[in-house]
Computed example of a mutant assay.
Amino acid sequence: MDMSDIERRGLVLLGCGKMGSAMLAGWLSGGLPPGSVWVRDPKPSEWLQGTGVHLNEDLPEDPAVLLVAVKPQMMDEALPGAADLGGGGTLVVSVAAGTSLARFEKSFGDGTPVVRAMPNTPAAIGRGITSIVGNAEAGSDHLDLAETLLKAVGQVVRLEGEDQMDAVTAVSGSGPAYVFHLIETLAAAGEAEGLPPELALALAKATVGGAGQLAEDSGEDPGQLRVNVTSPNGTTQAALEVLMDEESGFPALLKRAVHAAAERSRELGRG
């Protein structure tokens, strides 16, 4: 199963909000014909209406992929209309947070290959990172196809088991919000030292964005990058002595924050 199968048999996108639209835009710009895509969405955007895809039409009988991108709370309403696609011929891929493989196996029946994926919000600009894991019916060809589709919005990594998904949710799924809050608080700290608000925010945004890009692109470990910019007894060291404090700094704070998010993910998964 590969992209040629999708072109021939079709891809069904269930839900086309921000994440669905980001993925669809990536597929279309990558050469997937609009006529190979069927979208079900109750409130289609103007952009979606102009793509040329099959919008809210009858679904093909045997599509190659059904990609579920509805919000978890809409799952009970959305899935029944596509349940007859289960049974093995169609790969089901979900990007819905907190929705287990077992939930989809229950809806689509035995023999259905399912891949669960956790993307994050930078997918909207093609800079996301998505973690994937498959059920017992999902073979290497299914995972390969899911990875190909999800690379339209950034990097893809494979998990060893679904039990890792709660930690992934806490690190990369919720993680962008932590970084946005870092930008907010860094800018506020700059204001407190006398900078105009607009300047402080511009400095904070560019610093976090640039440092993140450097960490991704550099062959050096982030710890070494930190050492590289820390002169002995200099300004950076003065700040890091506060931030790296084992009790009140980043180590303890982020460990607590990520654990709280992971625990909440586990609670939501239990229903």
Rank of each mutant, 00 (worst) to 15 (best):
P33C: 09
A96N: 02
H259F: 10
G128R: 00
S131A: 15
E147D: 06
L48V: 07
G212C: 08
R40M: 08
S140K: 12
G128I: 00
M244C: 15
S172D: 11
E193R: 14
G269V: 00
L243H: 06
P196S: 09
G173D: 11
N233E: 13
R256G: 06
V92I: 14
S29N: 14
I183S: 09
G175W: 13
L186W: 15
Q224H: 14
E220N: 11
G52T: 08
L145V: 03
H54V: 07
K71D: 01
F180N: 12
D141Y: 03
W38K: 12
R264T: 00
P176Q: 10
S231C: 04
P60L: 06
S29M: 10
G26D: 12
S36C: 08
E7P: 06
R158N: 11
T121M: 04
D2H: 13
D166S: 15
L149T: 07
D163M: 14
T236S: 01
Y178W: 13
R116F: 03
L32R: 11
G109K: 04
L240E: 02
P197I: 11
L268S: 00
A69K: 02
A152N: 08
I132F: 00
A22E: 07
G271M: 01
E105P: 08
M165A: 11
A238S: 10
L243I: 05
S21Y: 13
L225F: 07
L243T: 05
H54W: 06
L85T: 04
F180R: 12
V208I: 14
Q224W: 13
M244G: 08
K71Q: 03
L143P: 01
L243S: 02
L143C: 02
A260Y: 00
K106F: 06
V37I: 11
E57T: 10
V156F: 12
L13E: 10
N135Q: 02
D84H: 14
V39P: 06
G109T: 02
A261E: 00
W38N: 14
G126H: 03
M1S: 12
E61V: 10
G20D: 10
